[in-house]
């Protein structure tokens, strides 16, 4: 465990709290992509299958895994019940089928081992790398976002971005290298680069998030 990884995980945790806080404070899920949330739930359910047999790994990992699965399920529940009036299927239209299909194909082509767990793990890593696309696509269609929503997206993107120095650290200092996670993590961070740029040049300077 190193600092980058802890900061990454904390950033991930913070992003979830910001999202729940956004819905509570605005009493609405406007601007949030239900499709992206459903993809994340698929990511966590397929990657964290091992909570049922790796209790010994660490209490930290197991509890974080449970928190990610439960909080995302809870978010989807809220979006589909309490806040469903703000859902706009006309805007949230990204073809998620291709993302799931592409991740499935990569998982079958490049798992570390041909076991159900390893293929699902690889699937979750590839799917996570593109799960934000419906959300970013929605942002592009509306052209603007509430500030709290941009904080959520920043924290979520920072999580994988912070894992990159963690992987470098582990590669040099521990001889640990995980090519699938690293390549997918870099792709994931690149997908955020436009968003990060606008967040930095506008939101952090007190302006509203608006696309040029």
């Amino acid at each position: 465990m190193n600092l980058f990884r802890i900061l990454g995980d904390l950033s991930h945790l913070v992003s979830i709290f910001i999202l729940l806080q956004k819905m509570r404070s605005t009493r609405s899920c406007a601007g949030i992509s239900l499709r992206t949330q459903i993809l994340y739930l698929m990511v966590y359910c397929t990657r964290y299958l091992d909570i049922f047999w790796t209790f010994n790994a660490s209490l930290y990992n197991s509890s974080m895994k449970l928190v990610f699965i439960l909080s995302t399920a809870y978010t989807i529940y809220l979006m589909r019940t309490v806040y469903k009036t703000a859902l706009d299927p006309q805007i949230d239209t990204f073809a998620t089928y291709y993302l799931v299909g592409g991740a499935g194909l990569l998982a079958v082509l490049f798992p570390y081992k041909y076991t159900v767990y390893e293929v699902l793990w690889s699937f979750s890593i590839w799917l996570e790398s593109v799960a934000i696309l419906p959300q970013l696509f929605m942002l592009q269609r509306t052209g603007e976002a509430e500030t709290i929503t941009t904080h959520y997206l920043f924290a979520l993107g920072a999580y994988r971005a912070l894992y990159i120095p963690n992987w470098l650290y582990r590669w040099f200092l521990e001889g640990h290298f995980d090519p699938i996670a690293t390549v997918a993590g870099i792709i994931q961070t690149l997908l955020y680069s436009d968003f990060f740029y606008i967040y930095y040049t506008k939101v952090l300077k007190g302006k509203k998030f608006e696309l040029p």
Partner: peptide
């Protein structure tokens, strides 16, 4: 050979 000692990351 790549080294993956289990998936210990989140």
């Amino acid at each position: 050979e790549h080294v993956v000692r289990g998936h210990d990351e989140l």
